[in-house]
Amino acid sequence: MTMNDSASANNRPFQDYDQPSRFYNTRLSPRDAWFGATVAAWFHGLGMLLELAIIRNIPGVSATPAVISATVALMLLVVLYSRRKTPSVQLASIIYLINSASVVTVLILTNVQFATLEGNWVPFQAAKLGCLIAAMVAPEFWVGLLSILAYCLGSVLQFEFFFPAEVKAQVSAAEPWATLAFGLAGVLSLVYRFRRIQLEQEVARIQAQSFAIQRLASAFLNIRDLMNTPLQVIELSTGLLRNRNQPPKPLLDRIERSVESLREINGVLVEHEKEIGWQAKTQSKNSPLAGDSTPAGVKPDGSGS
């Protein structure tokens, strides 16, 4: 590894830090992703129960797809519940995709039956709802986009290519544009949601950075706080020694030069104090750096200023 390689390797974390990723690469926390997948599975399970209730009133529509799909939802919920202590974005995404695939399959299998047997059938209501829910709870951007496309294009393609002509004629003239509009709304909502999450994460990152700087500045302040009084003690002590009959002048001069150097350090630190503002001596005197050790040379009672 050359020196340049080493330097670039060292710089990489800072480059990553400085360049925020695109919104579509934004990752939710595992807990949030898990929660999203869980909400989607609940929607799925409860939705299928409602579907079964509707099917009971419409003779001829098969209940089997809804029963199987409700069973899938139940199984997914069991997995989600049992693994809730160790959530992962990846597993949440897989579960979410299985969930969406199951719902889309049921809708595709029952759409024509509903359109044929239900006189007042409003086209693709469940698919439209799916587009919006995916935008709200998808654990990853690409997973959400894929789900929305599946709900939207699944219905549109089925309508265009697999609906019998007489059924198509009965369905509202707004189709397939209404379903496409819901798909578009879902995609835009998804973009908006992940952009917002990206901004929130950016703000949290900046706040954490600011907090770290604040802590560092506080540490400087505490160092200064602890330096002032010992310096004053040295100043007074050397003053007293100089007042004696035979003062050890070379020795005192050396001490004074050292005190002068420390005074310069003090001057540098005071600039940081101005930046972070004055704060009362709230920390334990024995933990001046927000740690738990007393610096060498400072008495435990090492009073501040």
């Binding site: 009084t229 004053q232 100043e235 003053g239 101005k274 004055w278």
Partner: peptide
Amino acid sequence: TGHARTHPQLALAQTNGVEIFEKPLHP
């Protein structure tokens, strides 16, 4: 005090004729 230049209330005290010196002060 060590906070002669930064304490928020010191400016107020100064208007009352109080003098403020920063530690360490030469004897």
